[in-house]
């Protein structure tokens, strides 16, 4: 049986997390179908058709799917899903919102946020903020899974898979879209950036995050934050790195004024190189850092920015 992958997109472009999910799916089976559910999203379907390993793109282009409302989209996926052995989505806010609803509609469990595929029914996933790794075997006939993007390489492109239209219009009338505020930024997406520089409570206030933005811009990176910085109101929650925020694994992660609580480490400890800048030499962040600099961040960060 084939595997159904839910494409992550904004009706304009296919999001990178989809490509990592395709790689995970390819380790479970051969026949991979990619579902693009949205509105006026032909461009996304065309991009989806170019992903290597995909044998078919399913396009459900209808205004009822425009805002990825869980009530409509989950119903669509569960109706299509009965023909599949696996249903996969990236563990993005969208995937996390919709896929458990799909699983319950199909009366099967969900395995969340997998980081390794051992076989078509056995997977690894972190639990307890990444302090333990569970190996789970699914007993369901349809396996519903969300995939941690940073744990799998991105699939390449260059394919030309056929696109098939899905004529299913499902409207629950239970929820309606009111508005959306998406931060506009020229910096790369946090979860896809090669370099991430994050600030913690030590940053002191939101204005000081400008210091990090300047370094990020020099390195072509993204800016993140610890939960402490979000709780203190310095920055919005969507840049929170950690157990309950974003999971990142860039080539270079620079932690500035972050003590290194386990909840934060859960979101970044798979980074290739970790740098910690903190004036407290006892901070636990130094125990995971490849390079530690014990210094006042208000001196070290501007100096770093200037010398890069």
């Amino acid at each position: 049986m084939a595997i159904l992958i839910i494409a992550e997109h904004d009706n304009c472009t296919l999001k990178g997390a989809t490509l990592n999910t395709v790689t995970a799916a390819a380790q479970m089976g051969q026949d991979l179908h990619l579902l693009v559910a949205g509105s006026n999203c032909q461009n996304v379907a065309d991009e989806a058709a170019s992903v290597e390993g995909i044998s078919k793109v399913l396009l459900a282009d209808n205004s009822v799917y425009a805002h990825h409302l869980a009530e409509n989209t989950a119903q669509l996926i569960s109706q299509l899903g009965t023909a599949y052995s696996h249903i996969l989505a990236p563990a993005t806010s969208n995937g996390k919102n919709i896929l458990p609803r799909v699983a319950a509609l199909l009366d099967v469990g969900q395995i969340s946020d997998i980081t390794a595929v051992e076989s078509a029914d056995t997977f690894q996933r972190p639990i307890y903020a990444g302090n333990a790794i569970a190996t789970l075997q699914s007993l369901d006939n349809i396996k519903v899974i969300t995939v941690r993007g940073t744990a799998f390489e991105a699939a390449s492109t260059g394919n030309d898979a056929p696109i098939e239209n899905v004529d299913l219009q499902i409207e629950s009338n239970l929820s309606s879209f009111v508005s959306e505020e998406i931060a506009q930024s020229d910096r790369p997406e946090l979860t896809a950036a090669k370099v991430v520089i994050s600030g913690g409570r030590g940053m002191g206030n939101s204005e000081n995050f400008t210091l990090l933005e300047q370094v990020a811009d020099k390195l072509g990176g993204a800016v993140g934050a610890s939960r402490a910085a979000v709780d203190a109101g310095f920055v919005p929650n969507d840049i929170q790195v950690g157990q309950t925020g974003k999971i990142v694994a860039p080539d270079l992660y620079i932690a500035v004024g972050i003590s290194g609580a386990i909840q934060h480490l859960a979101g970044m400890k798979d980074s290739k190189i970790i740098v910690a800048i903190n004036k407290d030499e006892e901070a636990p962040i130094f125990s995971v850092a490849d390079y530690g600099l014990v210094a006042d961040l208000f001196e070290a960060v501007p100096e770093l920015e200037q010398k890069l």
Partner: peptide, 23 residues
């Protein structure tokens, strides 16, 4: 029952690196 827990292992440890003295 929808899944079976086969095992739970500690994560790969990340060892501390070095301290540098300057930017």
């Amino acid at each position: 029952q929808h899944s079976k827990l086969l095992k739970v292992t500690p994560p790969a440890e990340r060892s501390a690196g070095i301290l540098v003295s300057s930017v």
